[in-house]
């Protein structure tokens, strides 16, 4: 359940347009708080608050480099969400592929006139 709460927090953090904008920007590579604030037309304090929410949700990580704070995508939570979609996608592909092979083999076996074509 801890994991699920973490995901909830991640998706709560993503409900805000500005924060999604920050993630989109970070998809192109790491940026400083100032670099994030410029296109968003926001104060450094405002951006810093959003970055704090994203960091608490595990969506970004920050690192102090000299006098600036470097922000980059934190992949753990995104990996979680992607991993679940991927988990189920593979499971359903396994089921549907398996059923298809099962009936195709059965049909081939019950219809002698079709021979052994693959």
């Amino acid at each position: 359940m801890v994991q699920q709460q973490g995901l909830d927090r991640a998706f709560g953090a993503l409900a805000d347009e500005t924060r999604r904008g920050i993630l989109t920007r970070l998809g192109d590579g790491p940026a400083t708080i100032t670099e994030l604030a410029t296109p968003a037309d926001m104060t450094l304090t405002g951006i810093r608050k959003h970055v704090d929410v994203l960091e608490a949700a595990g969506l970004v990580t920050t690192e102090k480099v000299g006098r600036v704070r470097q922000v980059r995508l934190g992949t753990e939570r995104l990996d979680d969400a992607m991993a679940w979609i991927s988990f189920y996608q593979r499971l359903w592909e396994r089921r549907l592929d398996g059923l298809e092979a099962y009936f195709t083999l059965r049909n081939g076996a019950s219809d002698g006139t079709k021979g052994t074509e693959s």
């Binding site: 699920q4 998706f11 993503l14 409900a15 347009e17 999604r20 989109t24």
Partner: peptide
């Protein structure tokens, strides 16, 4: 999937590219 926020997140077209 877990929360309405998650649905909103995927519904936002701006986000799809991201």
């Amino acid at each position: 999937f877990p929360t309405p926020e998650m649905r909103d997140f995927f519904e936002t077209m701006a986000w799809v590219g991201a």
